[in-house]
Write a protein that binds this DNA or RNA. Structure first.
Lengths: 353, 353
DNA sequence: CTGAAAGCGCTAACAT
DNA sequence: ATGTTAGCGCTTTCAG
């Protein structure tokens, strides 16, 4: 894809950086010596060292990573392909990953796909050309054949945080979404609620699917009838969902919202219609958010170990990057690693607690 | 790597990526032809083209960007050096910048400095070695001589979003912090409040300094006495500040908080102590935040044009990158660009409106 | 339409 | 301790 027009866009060598051999010439030494100097300066006469260093300083020489890479050096770049970077979840991931990368003396390229499969492919492609040493990717779709095919060909380690990649055996780190939703639903049931509706959007996402599964399991186990609205993607649709739910004669006793934004939108819709929480209806959300405890009523949520998730993914990645290179990446340490992190139910008042 | 089963031709080093000349050999053509193919395929016989493409596909060839760069191609990477990426402000910036970069077929390396000058220097240095084509940097300190010196040496465009870099003439895009705070303070004054305290932390940051200035100007202009507490950096210190303010006999009538987090922490501290807002004390915050309108009371804030700020910075950067390269980067288009964006006062109820 | 060959900036033998 | 030299993977004259 897009193999075209990659070349030489104009530009004379106006911004010509001085090269290593410029330095060598200027300093009256060989390139090897300069090379040694910029790589630590061992095996170089102290005087030469000082002199070369001064020349480097004088001409403002900065090593060209591309050239180094070409001679076999590591690129020291990893990539993070996320749906977006403003969503607190992925923003946190990105920050943790960056810090881990930094600790490994590496840089991080971040790309945002907006869950668009094409953008995702383009990103991965670009990242591969840039020879990133590892890839952390939260796939736009749980089963993009294209992505899988592309990833299959590559030999660099790949870790999928938050969302596994299809039915591949690419290592992943996820929260136990199903369990989290099950526990949440059970909690509502224990409160005595029977008509518990589940609100969400984007039900093609792995995480949402899993949470839906947990919700249904808990409902069924209790002999209750699951009721799902999967059209909630913004304030307007949340308001519509609330409208619909409360127009019926069978008003819900409680609401389970499957993600951060949905919880907030729903909460606002409820507040706008003066539907008292938790008296008229309880609400419990998946994903904690900054002001959940400050709102009145405060919001009970399922909290995910975001930081740990991001860190685990990054650690895992570097571990694999530095591994003694097992013959087969998949069979490395007895099966590819798949981590599932536990979630926590944070009881506040919106559920009736 | 020693054992090679007979019958398999292909590649010496299984671990390595196939190179352009591998493809050429396998396809029985010259490297030039393959190069043409991966660059669009013009001036190549359709049959040859198809054949070469199939070989590329077959061996899974991916062009090596480093090699291209070495021959003079653009790196197609820009860098964003931010204090952090989880703070909604910079997270938004990062996302916008990434999208602009994508539109220019470029990748974005993000680094988080935590406002640490050393980390910042290390980041910039690494970015320079990687030959980023442009740099967007929100400096850790308004006046790091080191940074300035480093940046002075480089010929790539640099843009400073949110915070200008020292007294350099590096182009920047900021919000009118001073004016924003002045307008906010004035608004409180017009409500009739007289003892208006200003709460903040990190008063070495450019933005905070400017906002403080605006606050003081407005207070002085009204003949009121400014009262500033600059120690508020988290919940505990916010609580302490509130404690202190309300212990005195001269309780404040209103509070002006100079950033997002400070507003929230202060709001919580007030709520915790059952200090009624806006009856007992009004509060107005700098920076809008997601639930500001949903909290009860809702919070009046100074809203910044974050998206625009990020986009302007990125646009400016690419503009300069693509510029016909003025002899002197600073004097480019008659002085380096300095944008100051307007803020908006969003009136909600916490101020007494 | 196609290929041979000369580098791009750097490192790594291999001399000296 | 230091210089020489051959590439790394790719693009690009310059000849066919």
């Amino acid at each position: 894809m897009a193999l075209r027009s990659a070349g030489y866009d104009d530009m004379e060598k106006h911004n010509k950086h001085p090269t290593l051999s410029d330095v060598a010439k200027r300093a009256g030494v060989g390139t090897t010596t300069v090379s040694r100097v910029i790589n630590g300066g061992s095996r170089v006469d102290p005087e030469t060292l000082a002199h070369v260093r001064s020349v480097i300083e004088a001409v403002g020489y900065v090593p060209n990573n591309a050239a180094r890479v070409l001679t076999g050096a590591r690129t020291k770049i990893i990539g993070f392909v996320a749906p977006g970077t403003v969503d607190p979840f992925f923003a946190s991931c990105a920050e943790v990953i960056e810090s881990v990368a930094r600790a490994h003396d590496s840089l991080l390229i971040v790309t945002a796909t907006q869950n668009d499969v094409d953008k995702e492919m383009a990103s991965v492609d670009a990242l591969l050309r840039h020879r990133v040493e590892g890839l952390i990717i939260a796939p736009a779709s749980p089963d993009s054949e294209q992505l899988l095919a592309l990833l299959k060909r590559t030999t660099i380690p790949v870790i999928a945080p938050d969302r596994p990649i299809g039915r591949s055996n690419i290592p992943y780190v996820v929260a136990d979404n199903c369990m989290g939703a099950r526990v949440a639903t059970k909690h509502l049931i224990e409160h005595g609620y029977e008509r518990i509706a589940c609100l969400t959007g984007e039900d093609t996402l792995y995480t949402i699917r899993e949470r839906l599964r947990g919700y249904r399991e808990a409902m069924n186990a209790a002999g209750l009838i699951p009721r799902t609205i999967t059209s909630v993607v913004d304030q307007a649709s949340a308001a519509a969902a609330v409208e619909q739910l409360f127009a019926s004669s069978e008003r819900p006793h409680a609401l389970l919202t499957l993600k951060n934004k949905t919880t907030i939108d729903t909460y606002e819709a409820l507040q706008e219609r003066d539907i008292s929480v938790p008296n008229s209806v309880a609400i419990l959300g998946y994903d904690d958010f900054e002001l959940a405890a400050t709102l009145r009523p405060s919001v009970t949520v399922v909290q995910q170990p975001i930081e740990n998730l991001g860190r685990a993914a990054a650690d895992l990645l570097f571990e694999q990057m530095n591994a003694p290179h097992a013959s087969d990446p998949a069979s490395a340490k007895g099966g590819s690693s798949k981590l599932q992190l536990r979630t926590r139910l944070i009881r506040r008042s919106s559920c009736g607690c």
